[in-house]
Write a protein that binds this DNA or RNA. Structure first.
Lengths: 242, 242
DNA sequence: CGGAGACTTGACTTATATCAAAGCGTGTGG
DNA sequence: CCACACGCTTTGATATAAGTCAAGTCTCCG
């Protein structure tokens, strides 16, 4: 799909006008000219849960913005043991700059909608517009902070603390437009019990047991396996173990 | 210590001439003018093992290049549980750009020598010389890849696999000038058993047991607790579990 | 030589994994 | 519309890898 240009809206392509990636994501770094150039070669698409976006050690020839849904980033050992090493929410930028092969797998955890670009186009604009590289650098630093924070959870928290921490990070990221200091939250879990286990380095049975414990203790309510309500976020925070 | 300028060496400050950070590190991005400007405000110093360089949530007003030794990056829970979330070797750049407070602790694991700069000087030059920001971006991406790789080890490898993986990453990083594909290696462990345990999310007793097992199996030799010899790297690699 | 910190080793405990079975919800075909 | 099948989840019983507690030993230094 090629994007139409609307010369009456400061030259910003129509599809970009209300796009989250332009408001809070990588495209916010671009002036109208670059936006038009990139939009010409971009395409939006929808991906079903479980579909692989990027394979470990595979060449990738496009970058994407996550417009909605959740992407899981995973790494695997040769015998099949798997670890989720990151989650990407809207409006994160997906792709590894300066490297032909991705060091990780990326897979749609939910229905995901993406706006994708040819790798070459992004890299050309990155050279012309240092502000784009600057934004991507900042996002990468935030991802690094998150990865290290998650290492503490995976390595040093107990199973109950891990599950509570997981719920907290989902609550804070699933809809980043809501106040991160909100005292209550409702959301659909973007991951199955197996996925959550792969994220926390647990077994899915353990995840299930910890969720029923949180439910029994009145900290969360769960409807239809996926829909979670947290009435009192601070009680959940207390279960994260410092 | 302020650095003398030697106008006969293409204007490169003498101390920088043979510096690893200029050859393979962040300073390689700088032209002689910027190098001189930065060198004027830089200072080299030596740090004893165990000395804290940066505190979690503390303001930092300097950046550094690691010239020798190993720096451990840690995060802690309020009850004292600790996780090492990264190691920095020469000539890595130490510091979190674009943020006043560090999200982690940094501590000298061995004797460390640093070349430090005022934060403001680095940030000013980063604006003038996009190549510097570009290098730091690349290092950050490499650190992110390493953090994610390490998450797999912490989360999904067994204790024997963890210790073997640890030895492998030390062998490959302690002296980056040697061929990473070398078939044998000798090195001093930069970390105590307690530190290794904090890196691998194990207890130090477990680390000790796994090391004696590797020794009993003839994969490694250990002298004086710290000095390790690996005659056959591929046998060590086989113990890392894919 | 002696003392302190780092390390090893052994005996026992425990959190989480593993194995097994049954429950639930959703979509499909009869 | 029912039923049946499939994937996901819960729950229970048991096993085990790693943790904990407790001596000791080794090394390095003063």
């Amino acid at each position: 799909m090629t994007v139409q240009q609307d010369i009456h809206s400061s030259g910003i392509p129509v599809l970009c006008l209300s796009c989250e990636a332009r408001h809070r994501g990588a495209c916010g770094a671009l002036d109208p000219d670059h936006l038009v150039g990139l939009a010409k070669t971009s395409w939006r698409h929808k991906i079903e849960p479980g579909v692989k976006l990027i394979g470990d050690a595979e060449a990738v020839d496009s970058y994407s913005n996550v417009l909605s849904g959740v992407v899981k980033l995973t790494k695997s050992l040769s015998d099949g043991r798997q670890q989720i090493v990151g989650l990407q929410f809207a409006p994160d930028f997906l792709g590894r700059p300066f490297k032909v092969e991705s060091p990780i797998n990326a897979e749609a955890a939910t229905v995901v909608s993406l706006c994708s670009f040819p790798k070459a186009a992004v890299e050309r604009i990155m050279k012309e517009a240092p502000e784009l590289e600057h934004r991507l650098f900042k996002q990468t630093l935030i991802e690094l902070d998150a990865a290290r924070e998650w290492m503490v959870t995976v390595g040093r928290r107990t199973a109950p603390e891990k599950v509570a921490s997981f719920l907290l990070t989902i609550a804070r990221n699933i809809d980043r437009t809501v106040d991160p200091a909100a005292r209550s939250a409702r959301f659909d879990l973007p991951l199955t019990r197996v996925d959550i286990a792969d994220f926390l380095a647990l077994r899915f049975e353990t995840v299930s047991r910890q969720l029923t414990r949180l439910r029994a203790d009145g900290i969360i309510r769960i409807e239809n396996n996926r829909h979670v309500t947290v009435d009192n976020m601070s009680r959940l925070e207390q279960r994260c173990g410092g």
